[in-house]
Computed example of a mutant assay.
Amino acid sequence: MDLDAYVGAHLAEWRRLEELTRRRQLSGPESDELVERYQQVATHLSVVRTSAPDAGVIAYLSTLLSRARNRASGTRTGTWSGVRRFFLERFPAALYRLRWWWLGTLVANVAVTGAMIAWLLGHPAVEQSLLSPADVDQLVNHDFEDYYSNYAASHFAAQVWVNNAWVTGLCIALGVLGLPVIYLLFQNIANLAIIGSIMIRHDHGAHFFGLILPHGLLELTAVFVAGGTGLRLFWSWVEPGALTRTQSLAREGRTAGTVALGLVAVLLVSGIIEAFVTPSPLPTWARIGIGLVAESVFFAYVFVLGRNAFLRGQTGDLDAALLEDRVATQP
């Protein structure tokens, strides 16, 4: 196709649509014309993309169509209903659609952590090479528990929230590369396994689990969700399926953004539990019970609310109205 000739033939129509988008008020016939020309120009954009892709023309038409769509449907503004839809539909649907990725990540990490603790317990020389007896005594009798009460609860909650959000953000942001996600997850569970084995060896196993489980159940689940989402992002360009690699990566990238935003709220809850429940004088069974309730609520959120939203067509991706215009054309 001769792009110059095509542009020359339709430039007047594009200019007319641009003029309509710039008018402060439209009459009834002009509004109808706006919709009609929007459809025409969307078709023109599809033809250019297919037959003579030119970055400048594509960018111009995409911008023009975006303005026309906003003018036709009205300016979108953030509302509480949008927040409600995000947390009741889009976010849980994304978690449900990606469930096998993060559940697999969760099971694998728990299994590896258990295996590492068992191995470290069977090889006490490793502990001796990592910490001196004085360091071990300090960790077991002071540092591990003091970590949860050294700061004011509100400040500690904010610190934990920011740190965990950073870790989960890295897992998702680096997911496209694959291996960095595995490295981050391994670092996380290796530290947990080393401390756990030391506490258990020195008869503080109950103390260790009593402090880790109240907040750790939900916190680690959020980290594993981020890890699984990152690995799915990596796999989206390795095996794109029926989509092109670019389309597959874009779709999973948008879904990963949904998950990252939603996990901020999940980690806020785990941070509050870690700051206010973990170091509290409540009996161990009560603190662990709160952690189990929080974890159960999260799984119900995914497998009840998320499943229902997924069955209604939600995937965690952006709404179709917010994506670029795609109009089918006859060959």
Rank of each mutant, 00 (worst) to 15 (best):
L106M: 13
T105N: 06
L64D: 07
D143G: 06
W119H: 02
A111W: 05
W101C: 01
I58E: 15
W119N: 00
W119E: 01
F87D: 01
N109E: 07
R69E: 15
L88I: 12
L98S: 06
T113Y: 12
G78M: 15
L106T: 14
E127P: 07
H142E: 15
R97H: 04
L95A: 08
I117G: 01
N141K: 00
H142I: 14
L130T: 08
I117T: 11
S62Y: 06
D137N: 04
G82Q: 12
A134G: 02
T79K: 02
G104Y: 04
F87V: 03
Y96W: 12
S66C: 14
A115Y: 01
G114N: 05
Q138E: 11
M116K: 00
A125T: 10
G78I: 15
R84D: 09
V110G: 02
Q128M: 08
A68Q: 09
R76V: 15
L98I: 07
L103V: 15
G122A: 04
V110N: 03
L88V: 13
T105S: 12
T113D: 06
T79S: 13
V110P: 04
A93Y: 04
A94E: 11
V126A: 02
T75L: 09
T63W: 11
R67D: 15
G74Q: 00
L88A: 15
W102I: 09
W101G: 02
L98M: 07
F91L: 07
D143S: 13
D143T: 12
G82H: 12
Q138R: 06
R76N: 11
E127V: 10
N141D: 05
L103G: 11
R67T: 12
Q128G: 09
G78P: 13
W119Q: 01
G78H: 14
L106A: 12
H123V: 04
T113N: 11
W119V: 05
T79V: 06
W100Q: 07
P133V: 06
R99A: 09
D137Q: 05
R85I: 03
S73P: 01
R69L: 14
L130M: 10
T75I: 10
R84P: 01
I117E: 01
V57G: 12
T77Y: 14
L98C: 05
A59Q: 15
A115C: 02
L131N: 05
D135Y: 04
V110L: 12
L130N: 07
F86N: 03
F91H: 06
F144N: 01
D135W: 02
S132A: 08
G104I: 05
V83W: 13
V83R: 10
V140M: 00
